[in-house]
């Protein structure tokens, strides 16, 4: 049903740390790898080895250059996947009921057996979190790895999203934002986590943790005192003689 639940018991989502993300694309690969053989149809590629390859990914990592008013420019890597919005416009526009938000944990999913591939939900999402599968003609999106997080066949440490598990720097955190004591809630509170484009009224669950304040660059080299060594002995005599010539 495309009516949104009034509230959800849990608000599962990701806290993405823009300070630690190094833009290695490991989460992109981990996501593609897991979801290619998990929930729903595989994430197809078109012309993968040709001149113009194209394919479905549920997570993309951008790189931006940010120039503060004072100080050095920074490179900020920016992962982008579904934010599992509370007021998800992608769900309400869906004519078939294929798109829905789960009342138990707030995960936004597509029932691919009911999807007609009209693409309207992808239009409605402001964050580009949905991509149509050109092979199967159905809409694909981040499932929050619903087939991992509750999967008792996996060892306990693997019961988190593939992108979180695969991140080598621990820049992606998974948890319940409805619980104020959860890791993601505390991280978000401590680090002033923010939602993307809140003025569009989508109420995203995911939070982005802004990069920490950078140190001020010291203009004098920290090696400067070392360069000022007074030579002594034979080297000192040579230095003095040569200086006089």
């Amino acid at each position: 049903m495309t009516c949104l639940p009034v509230s959800t018991e849990k608000r599962l989502g990701l806290a993405i740390d823009l300070d630690t993300c190094v833009g290695c694309q490991a989460c992109v690969t981990a996501c593609k790898g897991w979801n290619d053989q998990g929930y729903g149809v595989p994430l197809s590629d078109q012309n993968p080895y040709g001149a113009e390859p194209s394919g479905v990914f549920l997570n993309r990592v951008h790189s931006y250059a940010v120039q503060p008013i004072e100080g050095e420019a920074q490179t900020i890597n920016f992962p982008r996947s579904c934010l599992h919005c509370e007021d998800a416009p992608c769900v309400t526009v869906c004519p078939t009921g294929a798109s829905y938000k789960r009342s138990e944990d707030g995960i936004v999913l597509v029932n691919e057996d009911a999807c007609i591939g009209c693409g309207l939900c992808a239009w409605a999402c402001p964050y580009g979190a949905r991509e149509m599968d050109a092979e199967a003609g159905v809409m694909k999106k981040c499932t929050l790895c619903v087939d991992r997080i509750y999967n008792e066949n996996l060892p306990e440490e693997d019961r988190e999203p593939a992108c979180v598990r695969g991140c080598p720097t621990g820049a992606r955190h998974f948890g319940d934002f409805a619980d104020p004591d959860s890791k993601v809630s505390r991280l978000s509170a401590e680090r002033s986590g923010y939602a993307l484009m809140p003025d569009l009224g989508t109420k995203p669950v995911n939070r982005y943790l802004p990069p920490r304040k950078k140190d001020v660059r010291q203009d004098a080299s920290i090696l400067a005192p070392l360069l000022d060594i007074k030579a002594s002995g034979f080297a000192g005599w040579l230095d003095r003689v040569l200086g006089k010539i």
Binding site: L18, G23, R60, V61, H62, S63, Y64, A65, V66, Q67, P68, I69, A73, Q74, T75, I76, F78, R80, Y194, A195, L196, Y208, P210, P211
Partner: peptide, 14 residues
């Protein structure tokens, strides 16, 4: 949301 730090430009496409 990076406008809270400074002026943002694309460094490298995703």
């Amino acid at each position: 949301g990076l406008d809270r730090i400074g002026e943002v430009t694309v460094f490298e496409q995703a």
